[in-house]
Design a protein around this nucleic acid. Structure first.
Length: 942
RNA sequence: GCCCGGGUGGUGAAAUUGGUAGACACAACGGACUUAAAAUCCGUCGGCUUGAAAAGGCCGUACCGGUUCAAUUCCGGUCCCGGGCACCA
């Protein structure tokens, strides 16, 4: 709207000091009165669904939450200003293990503990001033939510997407209970201290592998996801191309006919296989143990039962094995290869058996070295082949011809040595070459790269792909194998022998088998007034819960007492927010309006599991006709971890007790490094552990409440956003909180000083000049407007495209510093000052919305900042005639030049050569080359 | 062990497409104001070095090497730190 005259007014006095407590209270009440963040489907604006990963209600917020939710709120508010119809919901990932741990420790039912935590944390979240539509709040432990999860389960069970099989879990033999990986510490149960064993139990599985290809290919349709996350997911799914190879049993030692199946991605190394290895759970291992007279095999298999199921433990375990005494035949040569049982072979991947090629595989090499198994080199690198050629040439020059036919690479050294001995006078060059070659062969580690096949019979001389094709074709022709592909991804086991989770809706009937609970009997409600005792699942002891008639035949049957993995709840909550009150289905039509999520924000620690499961669930729901589209999250921002040091003491049983950083005094050396820590309570030392993500289990979360109480939510938000860009991990420190507070005070004061003189209409190109004929902007005012509009353009880009909120804040700080130096008091200068202050209030609005609300009310009485769009940069203010360019000599900075923006290459070159600093550097020499980058620099190369 | 990130002043960081290394802050130090303190404002602030000063020079982005007129940025290798590894969420 053009304004015809410049208005000046004075009004009630603005509060001289920045008082966050009252400002924030007022702003939050105002938003609530206006229902400002209620999201409605009816809108002529484009929708923007901004979702932050919902918290687990662990008790209190920690800094990681503040970071996550502030980022989400900044993006929400920014998009609102950019004209979007924004929906930002919040809820609670409320089932989970910590509630059971709290129950054990405090004798409180998990439900009561959880609901109390939710109430407290909701209050904390509200005090941060987040623009959330609280009418959509979702809590996963309520029957209204999980009944639909049970409903979907029964559908998928009937479809065969969910099935039952046995799988290994960590078993605590003392507490007689299944342990989570986190509860296994150094191979022992966290409470009993007893060595953990693997135990096979029946579990329900989601057939996620059926969607493996789609989950992999879908990654290519997600340009708004970080490359890093897509790479991690692709590697996790782990599609590989390889070959199934069958090794025929040796009748004599195995005692029957048959084939040992292995899968390998390196069939080109088949000729280097010197043994095969099977997992301890492999049928052939059991058979060997059964027919063996000695107990060693049985003992070894039993030993492999010790320890937990975590992959990291398996992979770092010392490699151990035992010879079964059985043999299989090599599918090409027929040579007898020994069958070993090895603890590094995983039953869960491939066939549970591998062909071992020590010369070209790290783990096989280590194993072969330990048990003195033969190593056969069959792949030669390019460098090795080059050396061999040189050798041949040198031997030729010295008058000998080398016989390279079928030469075993390890045998070569002996052979070459012998030839050398036989020569009357070998040249020094030859001796050196042989030594070099020998050194290359006796590598400490195997050569695992691709190369040319050697010592491989008819395959000798072939490259990787050629050999791959030839060998698999030959095997197929003889019925001993064929090309094949595999995924590393395994089906998703969701049964948990725990209380505080969503009951699995299955009834076991002796007659009918596993019967899914019929729709009309859903939900299967979890009894809430229960305190687990740590020994097995409470549900399995509650007859009232598990005794039930079979829905099919009506006979007495038993309800399943396992609950679901909590990842199941978090796999579809994003869809439920669209229709949180729907009582007729998981979601309704509104899901089609809001999905996909436009921006998802959460910790990088969820890069694989949660995000993969949620993508999988979206496809399941799509196939049920519940949602549209193939992917749930269009754009993803993975926030870096907020990490903090951990502190602990060990009790008599080496169990650790963790202390919060707030309970500890840390001593540092003169360089600021921690050298020791003591507990405030008793002054005695505690150990300093590693620095890790803030988590309940290590008690290193830092509560933001103290900062909010002392400085206000805006300072907490500003500080968190200013500390680092969102994707970067951040070691927690509150140094700098006061700096953030100081900045807000400076903004307030600048506005106050201006308002005290009377507010005016903000400068708009050309207008004040028309109103006050003869007035013009001073050079300083023009420069300030240039900086203002450069800042607007930058902040817009930082908040929108780059999502680097720290630099957006820094640019505003620079602008405020520039405004503070601008002391012109002419009427036209005051319109520029007004323009700058209004722009700062708007640019900072997404980050410090309470302050922005209050400032706007002072700068533009009667109008609401919620209705303001994000400012636009004024092109006329950005126009510049002159720019600064850099002069380098040999790439080093030697001076600057201010030149016309239009200066061409020749002019720039001339001006640079005439620069005194350049003349001094050149000292009469003639430049070899001059590189001119217009608008940037001139580099003179001497 | 495997997969994915990160490493820049005393500290958090900036440098957006290979083009001025250290913006903006914190801390520290010096000064102004004050009876004093707090608050606020002004100034200094990577290392070494030449110079009385003005003003220069060299080195410097974990480490080693490479590509380039030019590397924090690209490539190869090493070390350290963080995340994930399927039952923490």
């Amino acid at each position: 709207m053009p304004h015809s005259k410049i208005q000046t007014s004075t009004r009630k006095i603005m509060q001289p000091n920045y008082q966050p407590a009252s400002i924030e209270q007022q702003a939050q009440r105002h938003w609530e009165d206006r229902q400002a963040f209620r999201a409605a489907e009816q809108s002529d604006k484009p929708k923007y669904y901004c979702l932050s990963m919902f918290p687990y209600p662990s008790g209190k917020l920690h800094m990681g939450h503040v970071r996550n939710y502030t980022i989400g709120d900044v993006l929400s508010r920014y998009h609102r200003m950019k004209g979007f119809n924004v929906m930002q919901p919040m809820g609670w990932d409320a089932f989970g293990l910590p509630a059971e741990n709290a129950a054990l420790a405090n004798n409180v039912p998990p439900a009561a503990w959880t609901y109390a935590n939710i109430d407290y944390m909701r209050k904390q979240l509200k005090s941060l001033g987040l623009g959330i539509d609280w009418s959509r709040e979702v809590t996963t432990c309520t029957p209204e939510y999980y009944r639909w999860e049970q409903w979907l389960f029964t559908r998928l069970f009937k479809k065969g997407i969910i099935y039952k099989k046995t799988a290994s879990v960590n078993w605590d033999p003392i507490d007689q209970t299944v342990l989570a990986n986190e509860q296994v510490i150094d191979g022992c149960g966290w409470r009993s201290g007893a060595p953990v064993e693997k135990r096979d139990i029946p579990m329900y599985f989601f057939r996620i592998t059926q969607y493996a290809d789609e989950l992999l290919q879908g990654l290519d349709t997600l340009p708004g996801w970080p490359e890093q996350v897509k790479t991690m997911q692709a590697n996790w799914i782990g599609k590989s191309h390889g070959c199934d190879i069958h090794f025929p049993y040796d009748m004599e030692t195995v005692g029957s006919g048959g084939m040992l199946k292995v899968y390998t991605t390196r069939p080109d190394t088949l000729m280097g296989a010197t043994y095969v290895a099977v997992a301890a759970e492999h049928p052939l291992a059991a058979r060997a143990a059964a027919i063996s007279e000695k107990s060693e095999l049985r003992d070894f298999i039993a030993e492999c039962k010790h320890g937990g199921t975590a992959e990291a433990d398996m992979a770092t375990m010392e490699k151990k094995g035992i010879n079964t005494g059985m043999f299989v035949g090599h599918p090409v040569t027929g040579e007898k290869l020994p069958v070993w049982i090895a603890n590094y072979v995983l039953m869960s991947y491939g066939e549970g058996a591998v062909m071992a090629v020590p010369a070209h595989d790290e783990r096989d090499y280590e194993f072969a070295a330990k048990y003195d198994l033969p190593v056969k080199h069959v792949i030669a690198s390019t460098e090795l082949l080059d050396k061999w050629k040189k050798l041949e040439a040198q031997f030729g020059a010295d008058g000998h011809e080398l016989d390279r036919e079928d030469l075993d690479l390890m045998g070569m050294i002996a052979y070459l040595g012998k030839v050398l001995m036989d020569m009357p006078a070998p040249s020094e060059a030859l001796i050196n070459l042989v030594q070099e070659f020998a050194g290359q062969l006796q590598l400490e580690s195997p050569y695992t790269g691709q190369g040319t096949l050697v010592c491989s019979g008819k395959y000798g001389g072939m490259e990787f792909q050629e050999a791959f094709d030839a060998i698999s074709a030959d095997l197929q022709a003889r019925g001993l194998g064929r090309k094949s592909g595999k995924f590393r991804l395994r089906d998703w086991g969701i049964s948990r022998q725990r209380y505080w989770g969503c009951p699995i809706p299955i009834i076991h009937c002796f007659t009918c088998g596993d019967v899914p609970v019929p729709d009309e009997q859903l939900p299967v409600k979890l009894p809430e007034n229960v305190v687990p005792d740590g020994a097995g699942s409470p549900l399995a002891k509650m007859q009232d819960f598990y005794m039930t008639p079979c829905p099919q035949c009506g006979k007495a049957a038993k309800r399943e007492t396992d609950t679901m993995d909590t990842f199941v709840e978090s796999s579809w909550y994003y869809a439920r927010y669209a229709s949180p009150d729907c009582t007729t289905g998981m979601v309704d039509e509104r899901a089609k309006h809001w999905l996909p999520v436009d921006q998802y924000i959460g910790g990088i620690e969820h890069a694989i599991l949660h995000l993969l499961y949620a993508r999988f669930f979206h496809k399941l729901m799509r196939d049920e006709g519940l949602v549209q589209g193939d992917e749930p999250f269009k754009n993803l921002l993975t926030q870096g971890m907020v990490v903090a040091p951990t502190f602990y003491r060990e009790d008599a049983h080496d169990r650790k007790q963790w202390f919060n950083p707030s309970e500890v005094d840390v001593k540092t050396d003169e360089r600021g490094r921690p050298v020791g820590a003591t507990l405030k309570a008793d002054g005695l030392p505690v150990f300093i552990g590693s620095t890790e993500k803030m988590a309940k289990s290590k008690n290193n979360g830092v509560d933001p409440q103290a900062i909010i109480d002392e400085f206000g939510a805006d300072t907490a938000r500003l500080f968190m956003m200013f500390a680092a860009p969102p994707e970067q991990s951040l070691e927690w420190s509150d140094a700098g909180v006061e700096g953030a507070f100081r900045f807000l005070k400076r903004v307030w004061k600048a506005a106050h000083d201006h308002v005290e003189q009377g507010i005016v209409t903000a400068y708009r190109s050309g207008e004040p000049e028309n109103v006050w004929p003869g007035t013009r902007l001073s050079a300083a005012a023009k420069a300030l407007r240039l900086q203002l509009h450069q800042t607007i353009a930058k902040v817009d880009d930082d908040l929108g495209r780059r999502k680097t909120f720290n630099t957006a804040i820094a640019a505003n700080m620079e602008l405020l510093n520039a405004l503070a130096k601008f002391d012109e008091q002419t009427p036209i200068a005051r319109t520029v000052a007004q323009e700058v202050l209004e722009a700062i209030a708007l640019m900072l609005n997404p980050i410090v919305p309470h302050l922005s609300h209050a400032l706007w009310a002072e700068l533009r009485p009667g109008s609401d900042v919620l209705d303001q769009p994000f400012p636009n940069a004024d092109p006329s203010a950005l126009a510049q005639d002159e720019i600064e360019i850099v002069i380098q000599v040999n790439g080093k900075l030697r001076g600057n030049l201010t030149v016309a923006k239009t200066a061409d290459k020749a002019t720039l070159e001339q001006l640079a050569l005439a620069h005194p600093a350049v003349e001094k550097q050149l000292a009469g020499a003639v430049p070899k080359n001059i590189v001119v980058v217009p608008g940037r620099l001139v580099n003179i190369v001497v």
